[in-house]
Design a protein around this nucleic acid. Structure first.
Lengths: 109, 109
DNA sequence: ACTATATACTTTGACAGGTGAGGTATCTTG
DNA sequence: CAAGATACCTCACCTGTCAAAGTATATAGT
C-alpha cells in the first residue's frame, strides 16, 4: 500500500459522501472528480471505490439506481440520503479534530 | 476500530518518530506525552505502540537500549537514528500534502 | 478489420496495520 | 494485602486497501 493511501485511509467514505453532496454521480465520474480536484495527484483504486460504495449503501448513507444511457457503458448512479448527509458532516467534524490533533503531535516544540 | 484510530492510521509511526525527535524516551512515556499533547483525547493502544516500535526498529529508524532503573519496572528506551530523522521529516511533508488534498476534497464548492 | 484506449462496473484473494485480550513483573498507596 | 499505576510483550482476529482478473461498449488510429 502506498503511503498516501495509508494516510487517506479512513477518509475514503467521507470523500465519496462529500462528492455526492454536490450532486448524484457514478463511480467513474466521482474518481475523475477526485483526480481533478487533486491536480492529478490522487485517485481511488477501483476495488477500494466499489467496496466503499457497498459499505455506504449497507449503512444507508447512499442509494443507487441505473442510468438510462443509450450509448456507452452502463452507469450505476449513487444518491446521498439524509443519513448520509449527517454522516458526511460528522466525518468532516472528525477530520477537523483529527487534523488539529495530528498537527499538534507532529509539530516540534 | 474507533473512527479516530482509522483516521490516525498511517500517522502512527511519524507521531512516534516526532516524539523521539525531542529526546530519547520509552513506550509508556511516549504514550503519556501523546495523551497530554492531545488534552487526554487520544492515546495509542499498547499493542499498536509496541508493534510500531518493532517496525521502526526493523526499518533502522530507531535503536533501543534498556534503562538502568534501580527501582520500578524496567524501561526500554528508544533513540531515533539519522535515517529516522529523515523519515520523520518525510512523514511530515507527506502529512502536509495529504492534509491539503483531503481539505480540498472535503470542502464544499 | 484490427488494435489500442477510454469508459464503466464487479469480484476474488492477499496483505498490513490496529486492537482486544491475555500475560509478566515491580512499586506505591490505602 | 489488595488495588492501582507503571512498564513491557505476544497472539489471533478484524477491516480497509489493492493487485489482478474479468465483462462490456464506444471511439480513434493504423
Amino acid at each position: 500500500m502506498s503511503i498516501t493511501a495509508d494516510i487517506i485511509r479512513g477518509h475514503t467514505e467521507t470523500i465519496i459522501l462529500a462528492s455526492l453532496m454536490e450532486h448524484d454521480s457514478y463511480g467513474y465520474q466521482i474518481n475523475k472528480d477526485i483526480l481533478r480536484k487533486t491536480d492529478n495527484r490522487y485517485e481511488l483504486k477501483e476495488a477500494t471505490l466499489y467496496t466503499a460504495f457497498r459499505r455506504l449503501e449497507q449503512a444507508g448513507y447512499i442509494t443507487t439506481y441505473w442510468g438510462d444511457e443509450k450509448v456507452g457503458a452502463r452507469r450505476r448512479y449513487y444518491s446521498i440520503t439524509p443519513e448520509g448527509r449527517k454522516a458526511c458532516q460528522q466525518g468532516l467534524r472528525e477530520w477537523n479534530e483529527a487534523k488539529a490533533m495530528i498537527d499538534r503531535l507532529l509539530q516540534q516544540d
